[in-house]
Design a protein around this nucleic acid. Sequence first.
DNA 1: AATAAAGCCAACCGCGGTTCG
DNA 2: TCGAACCGCGGTTGGCTTTAT
Length: 252
Amino acid sequence: MAMDAMSSAVLQGGWRKGPWTALEDRLLTEYVQQQGEGSWNSVAKLTGLRRSGKSCRLRWVNYLRPDLKRGKITPDEESVILHLHAMLGNRWSAIARCLPGRTDNEIKNYWRTHFKKARPSRRARAQLLHQYQLQQQQQHRQYLHALHLLQQQQQQMQMQMEQESHHHQPQQRQVTMMMPQQSPQDADLQAVITVGNMNNNMETAECYCPCPAESAVLDLPLPAADEDALWDSLWRLVDGEDGSSGGDSGEC
DNA sequence: AATAAAGCCAACCGCGGTTCG
DNA sequence: TCGAACCGCGGTTGGCTTTAT
């Protein structure tokens, strides 16, 4: 901020408010170095800083923390944000935990300015939802296929055992089934986890990149007249499905 | 060059959950 | 068990900067 922070900060209820000064930053940093994070309400007592504990915590978490990553959000990080937001909704802290060095405030601001109102965000989100649904369907088909194979295998074994029983004494056999590892529900969960781990799997993320220059996938040849209606319906679908705050733990 | 609009980001606010005496 | 204090989260605001007209 170009404004003089000292003059713009105001006192309210004994607490200073408004932009932080370099001196205040230094005091808070020294406090955390000595006392560690937490006990924010004791910052004022121990340092003389006339800031509320809440304000101190916010300043530290969003600005002073040494592990913060400075600079613009990268395309990879953008993809992660899109994916996780599609799954978790506005759970910014959960999303931030998956992006080391980024704060919930930073991600929240980024999402709001880049995707909240712009059509590409809807497109990206609807695209993601569509992709996720396809993935679910595919995994369900795989599950059914595995089930079918299992039944065939059992039939073959039964026939084989019947044939052998005509020639040999019945033997103790260990039958190893090729049981599917996942139920459809487990597969769904795994899909979420897989997408949630996009930090290590960026090759699929670019499919959802909302940047027109980088994502030909998103430039679908839609009739202009129908596009609004299409996106409205997709958006209703998305909002209806997750209520914009769906998801479970939010942990990666 | 002037001005309006949009973009961007730091900071505040209110609420709910947790901890502690 | 209960209430106060503390903490963290998401939503919102205000103001500076950049871009478009």
